[in-house]
Design a protein around this nucleic acid. Structure first.
Length: 263
DNA sequence: ATGACATAGGTGCTATGA
């Protein structure tokens, strides 16, 4: 079973690249972030033609998430964090595989964490509130669905080894102790950072700034993650970052991250 | 300290991203 996450930074621009990538790398589930599309503009017919059922949740200009699945539409779809009032479209969850979305299925949560802009700002405070609400909700989801995968653009570099220049970024957004503490709290729920289950090349990033030739110089951050419930840990056979689409013309600034689960 | 690059909306330039 293959699952993946990709912040596409505008699905209107990146749709051909997503379809091309899926054709080369079929997925059982793919979650997208930053679709930047209102729901009436979501290209569900194009995905259906490619063999994928889509669930989507968007808004004008900013944010927007989607869940694409092969082999039937996701069940029990949830948009945003239940009980958390939010103007911004950041979460989509659904169950794949199990009959009627029962506990045998895999619960997939796709999330676009707030950026936070700058420590001390209103947006940073919103990021903290949002993460607290996510944490509480994921706890209940995990209790109901041990086979849980939480993936997306976390906008957190969990450790210094996830940052190309940890001294430059110390205390900066994505690297503050507060954000990293929230990431660890998710792990304390019984989630595992799938990427770190394997030996990985040093300087592995999932995002590179468009500016300053950052990709060419491999100056990036690892801020896109796939966390799996401990019940799934033994079945994780691979977790990789695919840098190839970052070399496309008009690339997203994020690379897809992929997970392989043994059957 | 600032901007660098990209996107959307709108047609100037600002807001946002990370």
């Amino acid at each position: 079973m293959k699952l993946a996450t990709w912040n596409v930074n505008s699905l209107a621009v990146r749709l051909p690249q997503v379809l091309e990538w899926l054709a080369a790398h079929p997925q059982d589930a793919l979650v997208l972030q930053e679709t930047k599309l209102t729901d009436d503009k979501f290209p569900h017919a194009e995905f259906a033609a490619a063999g994928y059922a889509a669930q989507w949740f968007g808004q004008k200009t900013y944010n927007g998430v989607a869940l694409l699945t092969r082999g039937g539409a996701a069940a029990d779809v949830v948009r945003n964090i239940p009980g958390f009032e939010d103007e911004q479209a950041r979460v989509i969850a659904g169950t794949i595989g199990g009959a009627e979305g029962g506990a045998a299925g895999h619960r997939v949560i796709g999330a676009y964490f707030p950026n936070g802009q700058e420590p001390g700002s209103d947006k940073f405070a919103y990021k903290m509130r949002w993460m607290e609400a996510l944490h509480a909700w994921v706890r209940t989801e995990l209790a109901a669905h041990p086979n849980l995968v939480l993936m997306g653009d976390f906008n957190i570099a969990p450790e210094d080894r996830d940052v190309y220049d940890p001294v430059l970024w110390a205390g900066q957004i994505h690297c503050t102790p507060e954000e990293r503490a929230h990431f660890r709290q998710l792990l304390e729920l019984g989630l595992v950072d799938a990427f770190r289950l394997f030996e990985q090349a040093p300087k592995s990033w999932s995002w590179w700034d468009y500016r300053n030739l950052a990709f060419r110089k491999n100056q990036g951050l690892r801020i896109d993650h796939i966390l799996v419930g401990e019940a799934l840990k033994a079945r994780v056979s691979a977790c990789t970052i695919d840098k190839v689409p970052r070399k496309n013309e008009r690339p997203s600034d994020h690379a897809p991250v992929t997970l392989t689960l043994a059957d």
